[in-house]
Design a binder for these strands. Structure first.
Lengths: 190, 190
DNA sequence: GTCTATACACGGATAGAC
DNA sequence: GTCTATCCGTGTATAGAC
């Protein structure tokens, strides 16, 4: 893929994640990407919405790859969950509570205002749920349990990110991690 | 309190919740509140930020009152949790997936960009956690457990709202409700 | 205290030179 | 395909009439 296009996507991802979709201007993205303003419309003729759609889908996939590489590295489910939440907490602290979920802020902003982008966020979440379900199935859970645990994991992580960023504290993440492990244990006991 | 001020606060709460803080204009708020534009600056001399602060704190308190009135109406913890998540799901469907947490969207938007508003959202979450902890203590849990369960409840609800609004589905809320009940049961068994 | 008009910056988008 | 200049709407904020 073209180099400038990659920089524009990266800048958009970073700025949307931190400042939100409506809170980020295209001029700001061009400047951050060290790209001329017109290049945005060259690579994304649909303007801000098309760029937003591309950012949501690409960063959503990257984030899933990252999380699943962690989970796959730990065959034990309980340990994998613990590591995932701990790493999320570390990463938040390391970025001064800026980098949490790459699409959550956008998802809430556009849910009731921009159908195209809402569908993009929904597609990402749907993909995460399906990947997680398959993953937990390979670790021995039945499909219904695997899906329930995946939803628990994702919703807990997302909610913990909201509180953690607002309060500048890792406590919500650690508490959520404990709860998800409890939920997982209750499935594994049978 | 002055009538126009109340309408401005109500309009701000509704619009911020649905369209976000940066996505809502003061002119739009004045128009929705059927108030002259100048009145906003009359009642909130600090402009948009002062209005945002007031909206966060007042709607945060109202929402807590609502949720706790439900929880208090059900002495059994498990039942209270189930009712809370079911009612959240019903309310979401009734408003076409618009009205979830009144401050979550703002919280994510401002966490890294506006320290005054970030502190306002943090104060609201801190208050919720303290109220929830006291509430579960009166129902027989020790403080540490009560706080852990409260954090689990709030983070699960917040995260489920993100997915539910994006996917236009109540499944994440129902799954999160089940997980929180499991977490609660594991505390009550001892 | 209510309301209108306006200032000024920035938003997204486009045209067109190179 | 790169880059600049510009259009027009909307954003927040303010001044001041009533």
């Amino acid at each position: 893929m073209n180099d400038t296009k990659v920089r524009i996507l990266a800048a958009g991802a970073e700025l949307f994640r931190r400042n939100g979709y409506t809170g980020t201007g295209l001029k700001q993205i061009a400047s951050t990407a060290r790209a001329p303003f017109g290049s945005i419309y060259h690579f994304f003729p649909g303007g801000k919405q098309e760029l937003g759609d591309a950012v949501i889908r690409s960063s959503g996939e990257s984030y899933a790859d990252l999380v699943f590489s962690i989970v796959d590295g730990h065959p034990d489910i309980i340990e994998a969950i613990e590591v995932a939440f701990t790493m999320a907490a570390d990463s938040l602290v390391a970025t001064d509570y800026a980098d949490a979920c790459p699409i959550a802020t956008i998802a809430l902003e556009v849910a009731s205002t921009n159908e195209v982008l809402r569908v993009a966020t929904a597609d990402v979440f749907t993909d995460w749920i399906e990947r997680g379900t398959r993953n937990f199935q390979t670790k021995g859970l039945h499909e219904a349990e695997a899906r329930q645990l995946t939803l628990t994991l994702i919703t807990s992580l997302e909610g913990a990110f909201v509180l953690a960023r607002a309060m500048r504290s890792t406590e919500p993440l650690l508490a959520a991690g404990r709860a998800v492990r409890t939920a997982a244990r209750s499935m594994l006991e049978w």
